[in-house]
């Protein structure tokens, strides 16, 4: 197991875009969101492989400044780490710097030209990466509109557009949210119930929605949800019982935090909506 990390007075609170927020409740006696990450490693069988590199990243980039994502495809958990440096003012958050910091644990093989105007970089990690390599990284660039962006996957010698995305407040910009959601080649919205399976009412009460268009699917992200909504999300998408149980047991210890969750979706072979991957986010 791992030792639970308590919230401290020096903690900073960021969403998955590394935008700061004020905690929902007083933090005293509560837990840091990184506990969700380290607990998930125990559930996903990656504790031995990934605890050290994750601690190393935390030490290298600084507490609270790395965003983690926990992905669930219905069968296995895996992880993604995100590094933000939109102003190019944090040398420790560049991918080149992270690559060096991770060298004792795994090799990040794509060589990135740091002159590329990326505002964020990320890569997936799984237990099997330990001692081996990470061969794909993702670079995120500013999009054509405000609060929008594009991501590219970069492997050795190859870069591809991976997805486009846009952030919106769900209620005040509902027309834009609906318009973007419904502009899809993967889902048709003729059946009015389809929209409610994407724009999930239990998660609609959030701070920010992100609509993303990916290569073979669409995705929606709900940002700024509370721990009750996170638990709903876990149950809705059948996360492992052990993982759900931990959050349920520690619910009060996480009530000062906001969380972010994502849902990939597309029309399945039988015409029904399918969710190939979901994810939730916090900071390390």
């Amino acid at each position: 197991m791992f030792e639970l990390a308590p919230a401290t007075e020096t903690d900073r609170y960021f969403d998955y875009c590394l935008e700061p927020y004020r905690p929902r409740r007083p933090w005293k006696g509560k837990l840091r969101s990184e506990n969700l990450l380290f607990h998930s490693l125990t559930v996903g069988g990656a504790q031995d492989a990934l605890t050290e590199p994750l601690r190393a990243i935390q030490g290298h980039v600084g507490r609270d400044l790395t965003v983690w994502g926990i992905k669930w495809d219905g069968a296995a958990l895996f992880w993604e780490l995100y590094f933000y440096d939109p102003q190019k003012e944090a040398p420790e958050a560049t991918l080149s710097s992270i690559t060096k910091a991770m060298a004792p644990y795994f090799t990040i093989t794509p060589a990135i030209d740091e002159a590329t105007p990326y505002v964020m970089a990320s890569f997936d990690v799984r237990a099997e990466n330990r001692g081996g390599s990470v061969d794909t990284v993702n670079l995120y660039l500013t999009g054509e509109e405000a609060h929008a962006g594009r991501s590219y996957s970069v492997s050795r010698g190859r870069s591809e557009l991976e997805n486009t995305y846009r952030f919106m407040p769900p209620k005040t910009e509902i027309d834009e949210v609906l318009s973007l959601l419904e502009a899809s080649v993967f889902v048709d919205y003729k059946d009015p119930r389809t929209l409610s399976r994407v724009l999930i009412p239990e998660l609609f009460a959030c701070k920010k929605i992100c609509v993303s268009k990916k290569r073979d699917r669409d995705a929606i992200y709900f940002s700024g949800i509370d721990v009750d909504q996170l638990l709903f999300f876990f149950e809705r998408f059948s996360y492992p019982d052990e993982l759900v149980g931990f959050v349920r047991e520690q619910k009060e210890s996480f009530e000062h935090l906001y969380f972010d969750v994502g849902v990939d979706y597309r029309r399945g072979p039988d015409g029904a909506l399918e969710y190939p991957k979901t994810s939730y986010y916090g900071t390390l």
Binding site: T172, P192, T194, P201
Partner: peptide, 26 residues
Amino acid sequence: LYEAKCEYAESCLGLTHAYIKKFGWD
């Protein structure tokens, strides 16, 4: 869906989640 746009957002509750799941957002 229209909470932020509607004059009566403070007194009208809209639809239950169960309804939305069954019939959509109307």
